[in-house]
Design a protein around this nucleic acid. Sequence first.
DNA 1: TGGAATGGGTATTTACAATACCTATTAGCA
DNA 2: TGCTAATAGGTATTGTAAATACCCATTCCA
Lengths: 146, 146
Amino acid sequence: MRLTSFTDFGLRMLMRMAGDPSRAFSSAELAADLGLSRNHLAKIIQHLARAGLIDTWRGGGGGAMLARSAAEIRLGQIIRLLEEGQPLVECFGTEGGTCSIEARCRLKTRLRSAEAAFLADLDRSTLADIALAPQEKSAGTLVVPQ
Amino acid sequence: MRLTSFTDFGLRMLMRMAGDPSRAFSSAELAADLGLSRNHLAKIIQHLARAGLIDTWRGGGGGAMLARSAAEIRLGQIIRLLEEGQPLVECFGTEGGTCSIEARCRLKTRLRSAEAAFLADLDRSTLADIALAPQEKSAGTLVVPQ
DNA sequence: TGGAATGGGTATTTACAATACCTATTAGCA
DNA sequence: TGCTAATAGGTATTGTAAATACCCATTCCA
């Protein structure tokens, strides 16, 4: 049982944006922040933008920003979106007609139910619950820039 | 969100064995039945045998057979076993120490909870519930062997 | 109008699931 | 009690798709 790194990275990006929802993040900044390639991140941003979860602006001072309040975005919704087209088992896919036991298979129902339970559990939380607060300097310790 | 075909095939094999629990299935028979390569299936059989879910015998007339009643084997247990070493996200793996937000990450808890919900839902059913009855000839129709 | 940012297509790499091959082991039988 | 047939089980190879890199068009701001 595995989520793609596409989803993994997408979630971390959103967590970061949710931690500072009033400003736009450039893909370069997010990439540096998370230690990932800008190009790869850009793909994820596009996907999220197309789905209306974030807004993006080109040009100088552009970037990406949550389109809605983080408290209104449920985690299940995010995962559903990022894992789009990733069937739990092959026969759940668009061309999964190769199963020899199709008609007699009582497994599919159980798997769908379990998948739903997974997402329902995630839907109990919102993006606001996992927002990543801006890096905090440890209190009481003076940080001396070198 | 995806299960490996290793798991997929393993489940179908077990469904088949549960449908006729009193006899041993050779890997060749199961492979032919499910339309898969014998070698691949053998790997799965080995894994299940090592975990004590099935018993195997070598030599002429050998094969594999459920070690316990199908009603005692919960689906979650099977999936946990077959998906062993397949972390939901990279940082759940054995060497997932590369995450830059480790300490501040509030996502992990939610994912673990959702994963548990997934398995718990499956645990509501047993292998007996999805046993694959031996291929049934349509009633009233005489099947003439060629 | 130039620079900075995203959009989005294409090409490449790489990891690992899936498969094939080969050897060791076992049980039945002559 | 050796011989044969069948399976278990290990190792090597292949294939596929995710992950990554690269490039250029487009857009907006200063």
